[in-house]
Design a protein around this nucleic acid. Structure first.
Lengths: 147, 147
DNA sequence: CATTTTTATATAGCTTGCTATCTAATGGAG
DNA sequence: CTCCATTAGATAGCAAGCTATATAAAAATG
């Protein structure tokens, strides 16, 4: 089929994403934290609170995925859920003290992995790469939500 | 935590990869094919054969993931497995006729999605993007396999 | 040639994604 | 105020990843 997968943006992006996850999980496993929990840590660290719906929007994942991740984090003692008494549909989520204590190490691991991933790119290339990735996401998100 | 996830290569790559998968799955669902099966289609289309181990290497996934994907494809009538009689550990995999008939439409869908994803990039940017992604994968693969 | 090591595949069990669907609560329109 | 639409969250069930481990065959080694 004379198809070079290394020239396919979709294939390469998928591969890179799996490598990012492997690299970060390797560093987070000793903290009993996993890559899927990162958006929640970054959103809530420092005592901030958010509803599940807000976290879902921030992480750009679907609602049931967020619910499952929060279930695992709750079971692991990383987050606490509290009902919102001004709107009984809502749940307010915050990090536990135990989770807050991990936040700094998590941030460090993320920066290490991002750094080594981009190690062979110049400063200008890093900026260009993130800019292009952003445009690609916009185009795809547009496609995915239309029709 | 003053962390902008849109400036994190790991977060953006993960997001882009999920959008790629959603976009391609949307187009492949009518063919009863899914994004995880694409490397197998591209490797085997045109009557080619490969062992499971060869497919695993091509797709850059782990062996149990390939085994599970092949199980689903076999159940769906997309591939056939045949024992290698020169080495009874090996299984030789090939596309069924039914799968071969889908190959052209699949290729078309992949090109459509790659095209729309990169629509806002110039030709030079597309080349640069794939080149940088390749370097990022090399750096991360190196990290992931070391220690 | 017997034993050990390596290789190919299978299986168990988990996470992170998804879609589809259900329930409960809120908010708006008559 | 009642009824309908919207919103928040939970649940079921699946795909596609992963690690760890088991089994069987082949290859290498003593």
């Amino acid at each position: 089929m004379d198809f070079d997968r290394h020239q396919s943006a979709g294939y390469m992006t998928n591969w890179a994403a799996r490598l990012f996850a492997k690299s970060i999980d390797k560093r987070l496993s000793s903290l009993d934290v996993a890559s899927g929990q990162l958006p929640i840590f970054f959103a809530l660290a420092g005592g901030r609170q958010a509803t599940q719906a807000e976290l879902t929007k921030i992480a750009a994942i679907e609602q049931p995925t967020m619910a499952a991740t929060l279930n695992r984090m709750e079971k692991a003692g990383l987050i606490a859920r509290r009902p919102d008494d001004t709107d009984r549909r809502r749940t307010i989520v915050q990090l536990t003290r135990k989770a807050e204590e991990k936040a700094q190490a998590i941030r460090q691991a993320v920066e290490t992995v991002n750094g080594l991933a981009l190690a062979s790119l110049s400063d200008a290339e890093r900026i260009a790469f993130l800019d292009m990735l952003g445009r690609i996401c916009v185009s795809l998100a547009d496609d995915v939500t239309s029709g």
